[in-house]
Design a protein around this nucleic acid. Sequence first.
DNA 1: GCACCTCGAGTTCC
DNA 2: CTCGAGGTGC
Length: 786
Amino acid sequence: MTPKNTATLAAQRAAELRAQLEDANYRYYVLDDPTLADADYDRLLRELEALEAAHPELASADSPTQRVGSSPSGQFAQVRHAVPMLSLGNAFSDEEVADFVRRIEERLDRASPEFSVEPKLDGLAISLRYENGAFVQGATRGDGATGEDVTANLRTVKAIPMKLRGEGWPALLEVRGEVYMPLAAFKAYNEKAIAQGGKVLANPRNGAAGSLRQLDPRITAQRPLAFYAYAVGVVADDYALPASHSATLKQLREWGFPVSGESGVVAGAEGLLGYYRQMGDKRDALPFDIDGVVYKLDDYAGQREMGFVSRAPRWAIAHKFPAQEQSTVLEGIDIQIGRTGAATPVARLKPVQVAGVVVTNATLHNADQIARLDVRVGDTVIVRRAGDVIPEVARVVPEYRAPDAPEWRMPEHCPVCGSEILREEDGVVWRCSGGLTCAAQRKQAVGHFASRRAMDIEGLGERYIEDLSDLGYVQSVADLYKLELDDLLAMKRRADERDGTTPETVKAGKVATKWAENLIEAIDHSRNTTLERFLFALGIQHVGESTAKALAVWLGDLDLIRTLPWPVFKRLPDVGGEVARALGHFFDQRGNQQVIDDLLARGVRVGDAHPPSAKLREGLNLATLLVDMEIPKVTKIRADQLAAAFGDAQKLLDAPEHAYVTAGLPAESAQTLAAWLSVDEHAQLLTRVGEALQRLDALTPAAVVAAGGPLDGQTAVLTGGLDAMSRDEAKLRLEKLGAKVSGSVSKKTSFVVAGSDAGSKLAKAQELGVDVWDEAKLLAFLAEHE
DNA sequence: GCACCTCGAGTTCC
DNA sequence: CTCGAGGTGC
């Protein structure tokens, strides 16, 4: 084969590859109907790259290979827009939109004119110039009259066609549109950046703007940008555009430009407002950020007649959504003490409307977060209500900082009780060390105890707990069961006096009595509870509903649980060292034992005790417990040897070091063990383990709980609201049929019950291909099997 | 040791 | 509801 032939073949193949790759881009970005797998796309692209490298004469600026970015260009040149890029007037209310429509109706003397409507993307406006169908220059909006030449960067945006498709296009064409970063791409980019320790993009808009202003197009090429066209700027003189904006958009799409699928045509003010609400509802589900919608009078004749006021057209307007982000002043940083003593800094903000609600507080999570954001009291900050409802401080506006604003530091003492605030070793959380001596922790402990999922004392809310605690009626949760009607009435009287409120009790004495009677009744009602609720109510660290239930099911007896040494807890599924130690630590405290005694003495009943389950007992012996005690150098094998040789914890403890060697341990291990056991604390633990074993041996283990429900072994997840019953009830009924009801969806989930307004869990279920039940299916299933 | 699955804990506003 | 971290299985 002659070199010439090779070159011709290469040229043919290159043209073929370019066509295929551009077609793939078009299908992906414009038609939203990808036909080529990513891997195939990459393969074709690499083949083309190789060809172009071997035959430099084939290289061309509009080749798809150029979309990976060429070398840095130094600086951006200025580009003058022949037709200025417009700015739009804004409307924030229905009236402003009605006014806008009325002005047009009056001027054109036409009722209910038609408007082209489209979402307003939160990105960066650009202009693209095509000469003879080829992309030659792209520029940012700049000030509207002059922008920057970002051609090389725009070549890397795959949604922008390098060549126009179809035919009949004008010799000169300028297309305007928005470059943006899709949310999924933004998220993926940041996740990757975090994993690699790189710089994170603040938000999709900044991501798009920053990416386009990169001097090195190779960096832009790595940013996942997309594009939507929304207008035509300059067009060759001899070319007649369609007569309306909507027809022009259609034409642009045929030429290969992505046009928003959310655009449309509506008539009159009602049409516009209807579209606005529709997009508002859809907003969170869109794959990109929008900050409003844009209305444009559809026909060009009407547009010409309306004309401009200064630089904004009278025939178009942007209708903005209430801002998701607002700036406000950080007036202070308070410390909130949680139930476990966690000290959480909370931003006190000058009240500001964000996305429809007035925000005055926002969490700052922890001290690390404050350091990361570098927030200082007095700063102007940007507050955001992002995808979720909870407001957060997104960032600081450094320009407005007072020069002498000091860095914020975690206070050394608890603002409530004055105890030291300490940080856990290599943890992020700072904690008040006061424990239950801290009024804040005490109040929250009572609140947790009384909460619906714990002891369920109806009517005992934050306010009463506050008063009961401050006025000295309730110090510990056990005091609740000491309260009498007169105490509550006296407390109310004192609280009213303290606050200077005129007690309405003078006139409505009966009402006040009724309130107190109800509370006494609710407290009395809570005396009858279950072991799992009781254990959960105690508020032991790391022990939530699920762990409390495991303790109740597997061990079955409060008297047993409150005396067991911590290694025994490790035998339970999903209980490891951390949780087991927390349990042991809780029950080791005399004060906690006293509270339990008081509760029982004052009539709290936790239901009938049952012996530990047989399944637990099978795996519970000296050998396993020795492993669970986390003794250095004592592996499973060593523990088996020791258990076999000594049989009993006390004998092991009393034995001299050489006996361990006789039992089979290497000298070094024996020495380590002896040293470990010489610590009093460790010896006592082993003694208690031995006693616990003896105690357990004396009990007849409970038979394995009878299985056989129709949902045995299945894991269900509930999301959204149900009409026929509460989620709690649904959970209970599913559990009765043998299902485990969990909070998060994973591959292991058997099915998800999705009620109304189901959120991310439903999405996750669909993503993982997990079965989804609607409420009807749930009801049918319950009806059939209960 | 790593990846995945769960659970616990904390949080705002009406 | 989400984040962080504990627990477990590979």
